[in-house]
Design a protein around this nucleic acid. Structure first.
Lengths: 188, 188
DNA sequence: GTCTATACCAGGATAGAC
DNA sequence: GTCTATCCTGGTATAGAC
């Protein structure tokens, strides 16, 4: 199979990062799980941050795809729903990784380093699109709040255990739409 | 004045934690700012986590007050608005500290240690109250999403710079209410 | 190309002198 | 109440075995 050492490292790292947090997970711990030494990891990844980055990257790429596609679409009701749904699907599809963003925000931002500006830009475009054309301040706040609603899917809260993805999808989508529509001007 | 060394330490620590994140801030850095050594800090606080905890504690206490007061009130429309408003006021009043929760989640959870269960309980009660009596799964998801909306006030997003507290208060309050009312059964 | 051994430095923590 | 000295752990760098 193609799955080599690097994939194995990423897999173990993701599991430990997700469980104990990035900073609380040592390279020694990861190495031991794989039956190798700390230094061996350095052959495959130049740093702990680079390892984290390799795990995070696919999520950022997905996120960018969603933002890119959104930009090409007119801002009308069905499209707003569609875009929000795509955001939600990314979050749910990469749940353990996305959860690290909310859990280890500081570490993740450090790790993505140069990509940080890219991510801000992606979110900025997404928010701008969701806020609609010539948005008021309130529209911009609502756009951010709407994406925040979707973040509830990441389920750090014990009130969310045992809730199915389908329930989350349906309820959060409508909730996010409700936030945006508070504007009254209901997307044109 | 009463403001002794301990307050000075907390003040400097909060500033650095807020700016560089908890893990990226070293005790040496804090000590140097205050013209003392690392070890001196240990006379005042038994650990870095304890220092963080002392900063976080007031916020948790406020949060608990809000949850306690909510429990005593009937779940009707004006009260839901009132409770959400109180939550928002806590967030805005302790903004730099509250922002650390979202930014350094993992570190904060570690730090509050024994208080972690208390905090979960507080949030559980708040969510339960917001979800209303005999809630459906959807109601429970909406309750979590509504509190998530309020978190948008913490403004990690560059789209939120330069937005006034008053604008945030008004827009986010209505947005959170819109999420809850998606239930159709509009609080009885 | 893959890994081990080893050393280095920074950061949190502790003991004991002043 | 503050300092010096010390310890341990963790991320990092490099030399070299296979």
């Amino acid at each position: 199979m193609v799955s080599d050492t690097r994939s194995a490292i990423r897999e173990v790292a993701l599991e430990l990062f997700a469980r104990h947090g990035y900073e609380k997970t040592s390279l020694r711990e990861i190495a031991e799980r794989l039956g190798m030494t700390k230094a061996a990891l350095y052959y495959h990844y130049p740093s702990k941050q680079a390892l984290l980055l390799s795990i995070i990257e696919p999520l950022i790429a997905e996120w960018k795809t969603v933002a890119d596609k959104a930009s090409t679409r007119p801002h009308d009701r069905p499209n707003v729903r569609l875009v929000l749904r795509e955001c939600l699907d990314v979050l749910l599809g990469y749940r353990p990784i996305a959860a690290m963003f909310t859990r280890d925000g500081a570490a993740v931002l450090q790790a993505i380093g140069p990509l940080y500006e890219d991510l801000l830009e992606i979110m900025r475009r997404l928010h701008a699109w969701l806020a609609g054309p010539s948005p008021t301040t309130a529209d911009r706040i609502r756009a951010v709040a709407a994406t925040e609603v979707l973040g509830a899917a990441l389920g750090w809260s014990p009130d969310m255990v045992g809730v199915s993805d389908d329930d989350l999808r349906e309820v959060l989508l409508d909730a996010a739409l409700a936030v945006l529509r508070q504007g009254g001007r209901s997307a044109r």
